[in-house]
Amino acid sequence: MSVSVQEADFDAGAEIAALSAGRDDVGAVASFVGLVRADKTVGADSLCVPGNPLRGQVTAAVQAMTLEHYPGMTEKALEAIVTEARGRWDIYGVRVIHRVGRLVPGDRIVFVAVSSAHRGEAFAACEFIMDYLKTRAPFWKKEETPEGGRWVDARESDDQAAGRWEGGK
């Protein structure tokens, strides 16, 4: 099972080890772990203009966040992203784990790992999967701050990151 959506935490080391267990053709495993960050810096697109004095300043501490998703579609969307990556690069194993439910700062939230013969393919496919996950998988974050709850806005920069892959590799 290469894709999991779960409330439980994951063991990144064990997942990485599993991608090369029992085989001698894996030369590289690239992985990414995303974490819940406590400080909400000004990154909203409306404020993220060069020269804005608020840019980069801490606005409100995130005490926790709750991740909602679309059961059924989420798994399909993640599997479609993995299939797309397999079509673009010569990779062996892929593991994607995304947590849902309530998480607090410091918690692991997402894991992507890709094994391949060589690092180039593994690095590229890992980054591609994260970029596409950000814009295509139906997850939504709601942050709890001292000022109350707020749904996180989608970022233009995430669309741009995913858009880099549009013209092929």
């Binding site: 997850f139 939504w140 749904w151």
Partner: peptide, 26 residues
């Protein structure tokens, strides 16, 4: 039916249609 589509996509009897804001996972 759990595939992202545009506003001109057809809707047929028995379909599951979802509306949501831009996604913010990862």
């Amino acid at each position: 039916n759990q595939q992202m589509v545009g506003s001109d996509a057809p809707v047929k009897a028995g379909d599951e249609v979802a509306f949501f804001p831009p996604v913010t996972g990862g």
